[in-house]
Design a binder for these strands. Structure first.
Length: 518
RNA sequence: GCCAAGGUGGCAGAGUCCGGCCGAACGCAGCGGCCUGCAGAGCCGCCCACCGCCGGUUCAAAUCCGGCCCUUGGCUCCA
């Protein structure tokens, strides 16, 4: 079974075949760095990250490029706010730093390059010149527009009819365009002050008139790159004229991706991307999540609140290409799933390390379950990165391991006699081979979803763990002497701190609050 | 208006491409039991679905075909 992906270009699920059998060229349309990233961005990032990890897991060398749009009127609009900086570049820099930190906190694999528009203006100008020379673009009043009527396939990605498309871009440029659907490749002069004003936050003192934003010299005079040309220029610079996979949010299909295809293919005569994958968006329980409504949760808030593992479990709880409901309930459910995985992993790992671990009871079932789950995981991921199914496979390993640990009396068949099971009871032990396989599978497959079972065993977390153990020792003594009230108080107090206490046959165990920082 | 996606149990969410193993996965919630000083966790079992509506094809449809109703998103910056 090979990897199949749903290609927006065809609307079909197709077998994935990169141009080079060993390498995959992956481009992801990154952020405009004018605001802190929110959970919606995180959802796409995580899914792209899972794609990246899975492609590597099945043997490809992935060349992953993700841009930062650091030239944009929305960024100019932030100039003067708080301590974001004194000009467009400063603001962009601030947000790029913040974005990279957010990405790290989500345990994302790094892209190979994070190119920025401001560093690729010469390439952009070259590309625009080529388009003008080939007759796909025209200069008008110092700006350059792409002539959509000159590109036969315009509209295929988004299934649009050119005549149905309403004007792109701001009203001022309409008069300069031959066709309403034509879009800007290069814009004369600085940013439009009105556009900047429109994106400014209300009630914030920006200190005077909006700055013009950076401009560059070009064959058509001073100006700035248009809104779509950057991705074409940067992906060609860092990858190739033809990409294997181009990913982005569903909301970018039109006009952004449509325009990317037109300008790229017109310029090179080559197919721009073989597979277009689109990440679906969040749906809020009552309304949509959007910047304008201000109802989004920023990535750093979410990581603080839920922790990386819970968040990633949540974000991969649906397919990348289906919308996902965001609500307290759905995220709590994800937390529940993660807890289950983590507890099972911990129990299995502990059992493996314990002195009781030895081949004693039949673990054929466990081993079969692990192996089946691995197959299911692989099949799920190969089926258009079905992360929800993949989670199911993980959970089935967890419950198989739990079942095995539970059966520390050889209750595996139904035919034992009483005396046999009594005898075994005194002699109980775990078969560690199956458990080892379960632990390995959880770690290995979990890591493909970016989940990490490696608890924080360093620094303050380790110390905290020791302190909790100390408290639990005290509590055990209270319990031994029948002083349950006092013991329960201790448990309640630990619980109030987010520390989960469980009494087991082997003594009490605890879990520190997962992922919460500090 | 145009384009797209989708309507599956109390919730959430796979399965729909390649019709039968789907009387429908996994999880949450609920119920009963085991275990436990209690709780939690875990385990076992149960409960809950005529798969939006109508019609068609077929030995067989959640899955294919036709019609209808409804929801969401995009068409302006947007992951």
């Amino acid at each position: 079974m090979t990897l199949h992906v749903t290609n927006t270009l065809t609307g079909e699920t197709e077998p994935f075949e990169p141009q080079d059998p060993e390498h995959v060229l992956l481009y992801y349309c990154g952020l405009t760095v004018s605001d802190p990233p929110h959970l919606g961005h995180a959802r796409s990032w995580v899914h792209v990250d899972v794609m990246h990890r899975w492609l590597e897991f099945i043997g490809y060398d992935v060349r992953h490029v993700e841009n930062f749009t650091d030239v944009n009127e929305k960024i100019v609009a932030r100039v003067g706010e708080d301590d974001l900086g004194e000009d467009e570049a400063d603001v962009a820099e601030t947000y790029i730093g913040r974005t990279l930190a957010d990405m790290r906190s989500l345990n994302l694999l790094r892209a190979e390059v994070y190119p920025r528009v401001s560093e690729h203006v010469p390439e952009i100008i070259d590309l625009v010149e080529t388009l003008v020379e080939k007759g796909y673009a025209y200069e008008s009043n110092g700006s350059v527009y792409f002539d959509v009527t000159s590109f036969e396939d315009y509209g295929t990605l988004s299934n649009q009819d050119i005549d149905e498309i309403e004007s792109q871009g701001d009203p001022d440029e309409r008069s300069e365009k031959r066709h309403p659907a034509d879009f800007a490749l290069w814009k004369a002069d600085g940013v439009d002050a009105d556009a900047v004003a429109e994106h400014r936050h209300e009630g914030v003192d920006h200190g005077g008139d909006p700055p013009a934003g950076q401009t560059w010299d070009s064959p058509w005079g001073e100006g700035r790159p248009g809104w779509h040309i950057e991705c074409s220029a940067m992906s060609m610079t860092h990858l190739d004229e033809t990409l294997d996979i181009h990913v982005g949010g569903r909301d970018l299909v039109f006009p952004h991706h449509e325009n990317e295809i037109a300008q790229s293919e017109a310029a090179t005569g080559e197919r721009f991307a073989n597979y277009w994958l689109h990440c679906e968006l969040f749906q809020m329980a009552d309304e949509k999540m959007s910047s304008s409504l201000g109802n989004f949760v920023t990535v750093d808030e979410a990581v603080d609140r839920w922790g990386t593992n819970v968040l990633r479990t949540f974000l991969t709880a649906g397919s990348y290409n289906s919308t996902q409901l965001y609500s307290d309930e759905t995220i709590t459910e994800a937390e529940e799933r993660w807890d289950q995985l983590e507890r099972a992993h911990e129990a299995a790992a502990e059992a493996v390390d314990s002195p009781d671990a030895r081949t004693k009871i039949e673990d054929e079932q466990l081993r079969r379950a692990v192996s089946t789950a691995r197959d299911e995981f692989r099949a799920a991921m190969n089926d258009d990165f079905n992360t929800r199914e993949a989670q199911s496979a993980l959970l089935s390993i967890a419950s198989a391991a739990n079942r095995h640990l539970e059966a520390d009396e050889p209750a595996v068949g139904d035919s034992e006699s009483e005396s046999e099971s009594e005898k075994a009871d005194e002699d109980k032990g775990y078969d560690y081979r199956g458990l080892c396989q379960a632990v390995d599978a959880l770690e290995e497959l979990g890591s493909i979803l970016g989940l990490s079972f490696a608890g924080d065993t360093t620094g303050s977390a380790a110390l905290a763990g020791e302190v909790v153990d100390l408290v639990l020792d005290v509590r055990e003594r209270e319990r031994d002497s029948g002083n349950y009230e006092r013991a329960d108080d201790l448990r309640d107090e630990l619980e109030a701190l987010g520390i989960e206490v469980q009494d087991t046959d082997e003594g009490p165990t605890h879990r520190l609050p997962s992922g919460e920082k500090e």
